[in-house]
Design a binder for these strands. Structure first.
Lengths: 336, 336
DNA sequence: TTGAAAGCGATACCAC
DNA sequence: GTGGTATCGCTTTCAA
């Protein structure tokens, strides 16, 4: 007879309980076809021995791993670390474990990860991307598990995100209300945020030439020193006598703008009005505090998780009709 | 005959290659006891079919999962998100996948995670804790895999961290050099940082009553609104005519102090000199920029990983002699 | 309600 | 060098 603490397999537990391996399995999986009596005695033994079923073997036999992969472009961005925290909360709260990857926006890496996760029999995947046309999208579509994209609405894939154009429009409206007369976007021209920003401004009668962009890089990979240089240049060369409005692709860059404003003696919000994006914790840390476009992160995480779970349950059937959930962003006014 | 793209198991691959399952396994695991010729033909088939061996089955058969668990108290703290990023880099770079957990400093959660990870046959674990006497330590010691603690030096466990007392001493010296005459620590009295801070000040002839602490909570769980209130109170009631020095347990709180200083018209660094801890990205975002104690995060991550790998290789033998690696912190002077 | 046994897809030992 | 096969610890039919 084994000592209780030495029980490491269900067979040993079954022997100790005087039942069969199959019965122990049923008890542990909450099957109803077990008599209360045997269920109790088995559970008692489980408690006493502190037995945990081997999850690898479970995965192998059942084909489900209770493992969810999460790919983010950059956890060091407070927006993504917050997102990660919310997702982790959802996963662990629902009995899943989370495998995390930092992609740095590299689509080769993303593809590798998808393969790796298929090999691990992951049940599903969350991914946030930074490119609109990532080469990893086809791979994502053909994964053996459902994928939910959390950054943008991608055709053919389940997506949960905000309406970025609407975010841009909110920023535009705010800058207009603050009497700005020329407008700049720090980020890529093809960013939906800029599309919405520009559209709103044009509709409100702003002249085309009063709307410009700069810092046209992949934002996730731009190093901040370079951005700071661009901001300095902006402060020195681009400001007119009338009030200028600056909308930044994310809060991280907006804070760089604030620093550059200090360096170049540009008064915020007197000469320059500033709007960031993501409404991260750094908005309140900056001086002056940063006005920003807020994403309902908790809802995004929760709905993403619900959607993924639904797709996991649907299995191969549901994979043909990807779903999109679009949230509305909101403006959080602060001092900038 | 299966189509190439349908090959999902090593047996199928073996059939297609006209060799045995065992041979395929040898090829895939880089065994030398395979002729160049068969190795080439198998590899060719692997490439053509895009075959990936099932990692779950590998884990099951070999007993090693190439899975490493990481537990952090709070990814939203930029210090930890940076640490996570470095660790992820190490893990993925060395062929491991990383399962991530946010513990919120809850030792019950930590214990659960250890059990879960044993069930998943994790190869090792990194953990950062916030309590000196966490109840999860005994569980950590008895895990089936090696554990490396990344926040403090804990007896009986592998640890990689900085000398927190030295960090406190650096802060003290800096405040002394800046002519402060009274000294405050925002954080717990029993924090090593304070021990070192206080010791250094006393040695330099500062009177005991000139050294105080406030905000004596578990720092990871304190909500920032509460901290802001405490900072306001501090600014209003605790500053004397002579210059005051404030040392904060981390940068997050130090930034709250800066905000409170603005609100209460306290000039930094004229009336108040401020030192944070961790030297996170927010030091450069604050205004004035924040002087902080820096931890060599990249080295900490790299050495932690090396240590963990060594312990994994040693197996059951090496687990009896836990190792500690202590780094030196450094002061990064900025405007505060 | 219970038990026996067939997988799940690899690894690694033992023959040849 | 190569192949056959026991094995890892569980889930899940199928019978009883």
């Amino acid at each position: 007879m084994k000592a209780l603490t030495q029980i490491t397999t269900m067979q040993e537990l079954a022997d100790a309980a005087g039942v069969s391996l199959a019965t122990v399995s049923r008890v542990l999986n909450g099957s109803d076809k077990v008599s209360e009596k045997t269920k109790e005695s088995v559970m008692e033994l489980v408690r006493q021995s502190g037995f945990f079923p081997n999850e690898t073997a479970r995965t192998m036999a059942a084909g489900k791993s209770r493992l969810i992969a999460v790919i983010l472009p950059d956890v060091e961005n407070p927006y993504f670390s917050r997102l990660l925290s919310e997702i982790e909360n959802q996963c662990v709260g629902h009995g899943y474990s989370m495998i995390f990857f930092n992609s740095k926006g590299d689509s080769e890496k993303e593809k590798d990860i998808v393969n790796k996760m298929m090999a691990r029999q992951a049940d599903g995947m969350f991914i946030a991307m930074t490119k609109y046309k990532s080469e990893s999208i086809p791979v994502l579509t053909q994964a053996t598990f459902p994928v939910v994209v959390m950054s943008q609405n991608i055709e053919g894939l389940n997506s949960v995100c905000i309406d970025h154009q609407e975010g841009g429009a909110l920023a535009a409206r705010h800058l207009l209300e603050n009497n700005c007369e020329s407008f700049f976007f720090f980020g890529r021209k093809d960013d939906d945020k800029f599309t919405g920003f520009r559209k709103e401004l044009l509709e409100k009668g702003i002249a085309e030439e009063k709307i410009q962009t700069f810092g046209d890089n992949d934002w996730y990979s731009t190093n901040f020193d370079e951005a700071s240089g661009q901001m300095d240049y902006f402060m020195q060369e681009k400001l007119s006598d009338r009030k200028t409005g600056l909308f930044c692709v994310n809060d991280l860059f907006a804070v760089r703008a604030i620093r550059a404003a200090h360096r170049n003696n540009v008064k915020i919000p007197d000469m320059l009005s500033l709007v960031g994006f993501d409404n991260t914790m750094i908005c309140d840390m900056a001086y002056p505090t940063l006005t920003s476009i807020s994403q309902p992160l908790e809802e995004i995480a929760a709905e993403s998780f619900n959607l993924l779970c639904r797709k996991i349950k649907e299995g191969k059937n549901g994979e043909k009709c990807p779903q999109s959930i679009i949230f509305h962003p909101s403006l959080v006014k602060r001092e900038s």
